[in-house]
């Protein structure tokens, strides 16, 4: 589904990704771990098409297309979803309004009919139950005045409603207590399917206790320096990142 080849990217003239290569197939869950400043969030932002990141070289192929050629909204409509590390507040804009506008934009792109209010609300209510969210969330401004945990749950709610093909979760566990993390993890797990790929970016392995990945990668100094199964995450937790960085000579 996703093929990243030798990707180099920089921000403000500083090289962040330095030859990153990664392949993710449909149905898989990948976790990308690494120390702070390794380029984890940059990877997520680059894949979603954020401005201000300069692609120096390399390629990203998504479902056979050149992902880097697409505008952010085109990527979204093609099924790329980024759960933000810091979800953005948009004062005055209802949560439910954004959700409906987004869903219909994606449906239209797929050649499906736009949903009417009734059909839409039916879907949303169902997903909200899953995320244990109070219906009053819908009529509040987008992320406005939400607690950290509420914001993250809201991200997963959006993901559940928009049903992406490739979900990128950027530090979704940061700022969550254990109960909130369980709810978020349950939401993510319910979205695991053979057609969908999920890439989680995280600093800590505790999220992986709840969302068990198929593959774990270590990102250090802008490259994937090691890949393995679940046990790699546990090893990292035990030994930290330093040994690995030394071992691979970065």
């Amino acid at each position: 589904m996703l093929k990243i080849k030798d990707l180099h990217a920089r921000v403000d003239g500083k090289d962040i990704l330095k030859g990153l290569t990664l392949e993710v197939a449909a149905g898989e869950v990948h976790a990308i771990m690494g120390p702070n400043g390794a380029g984890k969030s940059t990877l997520a932002q680059v894949l979603a098409g954020r401005e201000g990141y300069e692609i120096v070289s390399g390629s990203v192929e998504y479902l056979g297309q050149d992902l880097l050629e697409l505008a952010p909204e085109e990527r979204a409509r093609e099924g790329v979803f980024l759960a933000f590390q810091y979800p953005v507040e948009i004062p005055g804009v209802n949560n439910v309004y954004l959700l409906k506008a987004a869903l219909n934009a994606i449906r239209k792109h797929r050649g499906e009919d736009e949903l009417d209010a009734y059909a839409f609300m039916k879907i949303v209510r169902e997903k909200m139950k899953l995320m244990q969210m109070d219906p009053s969330f819908l009529n509040r401004g987008v992320n406005e005045g939400f607690s950290g945990g509420e914001k993250k749950r809201n991200e997963i709610l959006q993901m559940a409603v928009l049903e992406p093909k490739l979900a990128l979760l950027d530090e979704t566990d940061s700022g969550l207590d254990i109960d909130a993390m369980k709810v978020v993890a349950e939401g993510v797990n319910s979205l695991r399917s053979p057609e969908r790929a999920i890439v989680m970016v995280t600093h800590y392995q505790r999220l992986l206790d709840h969302i068990v990945p198929d593959v774990v990668h270590v990102l250090a100094d802008g490259r994937i320096v090691k890949s393995g199964d679940r046990s790699l995450a546990l090893e990292l937790e035990e030994r930290g990142y330093d040994w690995l960085q030394k071992a691979v000579g970065t």
Binding site: A48, G49, R50, P72, A76, L82, G92, A101, A105
Partner: peptide, 20 residues
């Protein structure tokens, strides 16, 4: 960017933010 990432066009996103 948040709105674009959710699939909205730039024009719709601006309209939505301005109306908010």
């Amino acid at each position: 960017f948040y709105c674009l990432q959710r699939g909205l066009s730039e024009e719709d996103a601006v309209n939505m933010i301005v109306n908010g």
